[in-house]
Structure formats: structure tokens, C-alpha cells
Amino acid sequence: MAVLTPFRAGLVLALAASACGDPLVDERYQGTAKVTLQGNVQPSTYDIDGLGAEVRTALFWTPKGVSPSMKLEDLVEQPETGIAMEAARSFSWPIFDDPRPELLAHPPGAPAVGAAFFLSYRDVNQNRRQDADEPFVGWAPVTALLWSAQDVPAFASPSGRLQRAGWHQVAAPMWCGPAPVFPPVGDTDCGVAVGEACTQDADCGQGGTCLKDDPWPWPSGTCAVPETMPPSCRPKSGALFVSHRDPAKKWWVKACTSDSDCRGPYRCDLVNQACLPIRDVAVLLTTPMSAKPWCRGQMPPPAP
């Protein structure tokens, strides 16, 4: 048995004392993330490795608010959020900083609110910010971020919905303006296990459909009720989700008010107030980059 000499005892005490307290950080430490995004880079015609300069993606905010006429030059970068891109790589992207007031829209009679989109650019001079002579080379078309320090009423929110304080990852493009009201049809869930996992339509019940990959992958599948014209049934616990690829495709998925209302890899989407898959921020590198629709106008009203 080892003898506990005074030297060894002192060493043990020193080690024990060193374990007390908070671990100390070095220069790499950035703080505690406000929100962490999962994403991936999908190279298109661009080869990142052949660019010869670092491609960075950052949050670009809309101080003038979100509208169909919004242009690229209306967007303002939040440089401290930028990260370097690697071709065909997945990334975990922590956001450490809330947006500064100058990056936010200030609707009359409402708190400041921000909407941010993911844009990529070539940081030629490697100063970690997008300069005027540095072109955009990509964006994440189906994801946006919303933020507010306080609750924002629906009339002032970019999503047209009541927006709670904090960060929200939402599907893009968003509807511009208030969302129309779809009156209920029936007071049941139409005999469909809305929001439950499935592998085929038969798993969801009569009249239900199993969403698997339209317009994006639905992990483990999810049961929904398609919106028909005229509507036959609208589930009581459902919320309408409209495909951004084909506005004619609409489904009633599980409604929610917070993430706790949704199962597994699903999150409560603020815009749709529906349980939607937590999706990667898919950064798509394309060229040439043109003006993109950031919101797609008014949501079509329900069929009469």
C-alpha cells in the first residue's frame, strides 16, 4: 500500500482544490449560445475548396421589415454570428449574440422585432464581415430566424402570428401579412391520429395521409388531414400547413403553442403554429444569386 507522505498528501490536496470551482476558459470560448442551429452545406455549381477564399454564412436582418418587395441590399449583417463553411459538411452553429437594436424593425405601437435570413458570401479580405465588393454566393431558402425581446402582437409580427419573446426558427418563405382564418369543419380530429408517427396512409386512419417527404422529410412520418376543396373535415387539434413548393398542397398537421406540444424531432413552428420537423439550416450555394422572395405574399383564404 502506498504510503501517504506529506508530499503526496499535499499533491492530492492540490489536485482536489484545483477541481473546485468553475473550469477556466481560454480564447476560444464564446459564451453560452442563445440558440444552436444544425445545418449543412449543399454545394451546387460552386466548389468551396476552389474558391480560394473563406465562404462564410451569417445572419442578415431586416431593419425595414419583411415584405415581398424586400431586396438583398435591405438586409444588414450581424457579423458576430458568421461561421465558415466547408463543402458538403454538416455543422452545429451556436448563436451567441442577440441582434442589436439597429438590426430590428420597429413597428408602430409594438416592440422591436427582427427577422433574419441565412446568406453566404466570400470573405475575400477575411475580415469576418461582408463588404460591398464581396458577392453573395448562397443562402438557406427554407429557414429563417425571428427574434424579439418582448412578446410581439400578431399585427406587428413578421409571421402574422403572436410572437413570444426569444428566438424562433421558422420555415421560409413566410406569409406576408396576417394569416387568414380557416373555420373549423366538425369538432373532432376527423378520425385521424393527427401528428402521430406513421409509415403509410393506412396508419393514420380513414381520410388521413402519412407525410413522409413532401415538401421536406418528416422524421418517422406524421399523420395529417389533407385540406380539400370543399373541405370535408378539419381536425379540431390541427393547424394548416401550406407547402412552400406548391401552395395548392395543404395539410392539417398537429397544432401547437410551444415545443412541448410536439413529439420527438418536431418543433412548434411560430409561423404555422404547427408541429413541424426540426430542420437543418440547409445552405445552398448557387450562382448567380438573384433577388429572392423572402415572403410569399398573403396566405390564400380557405375555399368557400
Binding site: P23, L24, V25, D26, R28, Q30, P94, F96
Partner: peptide, 11 residues
Amino acid sequence: NRAQVDARGVV
């Protein structure tokens, strides 16, 4: 007692 920080800057 040192923190292990990854490339993202997170402990």
C-alpha cells in the same frame, strides 16, 4: 480546472 472548448467556442 480547465474548460474543454470546441471549435464552435462552446464548453
